[in-house]
Design a protein around this nucleic acid. Structure first.
Lengths: 175, 175
DNA sequence: TGGTTCATGTGACACTGTCAACTATGGTGA
DNA sequence: TCACCATAGTTGACAGTGTCACATGAACCA
């Protein structure tokens, strides 16, 4: 598991061959089949860990009552984007694994969504939280995606991801 | 090429095996190597076609001077999202192919970006076009991505992709 | 006619995920 | 101490995969 996670960071999903995973873990190529039904299930397990990790970070951030609601929301969105920056392959995995079908994966993703929902509600109120929550998650995901594929070059757009998040949160604020 | 495109739509990138492409085109598995350096280059060629196709559609839409600038922008963003809905695998390919390194792919993507840029400028003015252009493309891409991975269920967020685009364009309008 | 060029067919290679059969290994109860 | 069992790991085999060097064949030009 740890071995697979390292290999994913180093060379992407294609580098996560069962041979390589086994070698890194000090076992043989067939060993993972004792723990995972499938290569896909192994990758899904990595994605679930990532979702839960993001949920933990946002949960911790939400506990910081000193910060203004807008700042907390901004930093929460950046937590997600930073996964894309630091572990691009893992990030891609989180969103390429279809959540429907795997209840465990769906639950982990729902944790993150709910964390964001309360963060957004603190800024725009309960009534509009869902609408704007969907908008913010979409936009944050899009920013991460465009950064990842190199379509968000600063010399072209004059802004970077962080500024876009700030722009977005400001635009959402009531009034 | 046509054969590869069909196979991509039917079963995703993994279905685009050289054997299948050859069979569908009536030739043998090694034949594509006369036309493409690599399987990756073949897939990139599909992505370039898709980028140019979107650019054509937005260009055509931009010529419709009867529509309000805001409506044109809205419909332009939906053009991109609709590729994600109708040809999810092709859409994924457009953004998984890194534009840096392949100048042809970069040029095709730049065409789309410039089309959107003028569309945005008609709404917010030249001065803010780049900023808001980046925001809108990011958000549209994020909406398409979340729809694709099933994270944008309407029962959860009470809105769908189309409404998010409308919300976004309204939020961008000056004043 | 002979020669050149180019698209295509073909066999081979190393590699992949997968699985059935086999082999430790470590603990349980008698 | 022994037999028993569950669990984890190994290993050989299988069907596919992308890739490439080489052979084939047809179309064109001198």
């Amino acid at each position: 598991m740890r071995a697979a996670s390292e290999l994913l960071d180093e060379g992407g999903p294609d580098a996560v061959t069962l041979r390589a995973v086994g070698a890194r873990a000090g076992v043989s190529r067939g060993a993972p089949y004792g723990h995972f039904e499938d290569k896909q299930h192994l990758l899904t397990a990595l994605a679930v860990d990532a979702w839960n990790s993001v949920a933990d970070e946002v949960e911790e951030l939400r506990a910081d009552v000193d910060a203004a609601p807008g700042d907390r929301l901004e930093r929460g969105l950046l937590k997600l984007i930073e996964v894309g920056r630091r572990q691009p392959h893992l990030y891609a995995l989180m969103f390429s694994t279809p959540v429907s079908g795997d209840p465990v994966a769906a639950a982990a993703a729902t944790r993150v969504e709910n964390e964001f929902l309360t963060l957004v509600a603190d800024v725009v109120g309960e009534a509009d939280a869902r609408r704007y929550g969907a908008l913010l998650m979409s936009s944050a995901h899009g920013i991460a995606g465009l950064e990842l594929s190199g379509h968000l070059a600063k010399e072209k757009w004059t802004v970077d991801g962080d500024e876009l998040v700030r722009l977005l949160v400001d635009a959402i604020r009531p009034g």
